[in-house]
């Protein structure tokens, strides 16, 4: 979110405090003084993680602290992983495969690309999965493993950095 506040001592801390008050986690603070700014306000961009449904209380708290919210970019799910599934995807109910991830509440299939060469031939698909945390992503992968096993699909995962 992009915030605007008075350019006076203590203001930035005052703006950040409500974030921790609602249980949020600050990932980055980008502070750039506009070169053509003549007034005494300060613009700050903050990247943060918030527990679900806490955004409204944060907005309220920031208003009370006299901080003006210029923009809120909303990305609920932070982790993204792309996998490929090969097999009889349609015959094994692709929408069920997707639902098994989507109904978890902590992960969802956000993109699906597919190619079906011919009836009765194995098809290939690329799924992009998003989740809130790394742990959730691992849990979603566990579910996908299980589904792939049940439906005799080949699951190809990305190589994660091991360092």
């Amino acid at each position: 979110m992009k915030l605007e506040m008075k350019d006076s001592p203590g203001q930035l801390v005052a703006a950040l405090k409500p974030i921790s008050d609602v249980g949020g986690n600050i990932i980055a603070v980008i502070h750039q003084r506009e070169p053509d700014s003549t007034d005494d306000t300060l613009s700050v961009q903050i990247v943060l993680e918030l527990p679900e449904k806490k955004i409204d209380s944060l907005i309220e708290l920031l208003h009370k602290a006299d901080v003006h919210i210029q923009r809120i970019g909303h990305e609920r799910l932070l982790y993204r992983r792309t996998v490929i599934l090969i097999g009889h995807l349609m015959h094994t109910d692709l929408s069920d495969t997707v639902d098994r991830i989507d109904t978890t509440g902590f992960a969802e299939v956000s993109e699906l690309a597919m190619s079906m060469p011919a009836i009765n031939e194995r098809s290939s698909s690329r799924l992009t999965i998003k989740s809130v945390t790394r742990d959730d992503m691992d849990r979603a992968m566990g579910i996908l493993h299980k589904v792939a096993n049940e439906k005799d699909l080949l699951l190809i995962e990305p190589l994660e950095e091991m360092a």
Binding site: T82, I84, I86, G87, A113, S115, P117, R122, S123, S124, S125, R126, L154, I156
Partner: peptide
């Protein structure tokens, strides 16, 4: 042995 050319193409798109 079960890989398809389509799977590789789908990976290449990314």
């Amino acid at each position: 042995n079960l890989l398809t050319p389509d799977a590789i193409r789908l990976a290449e798109e990314e």
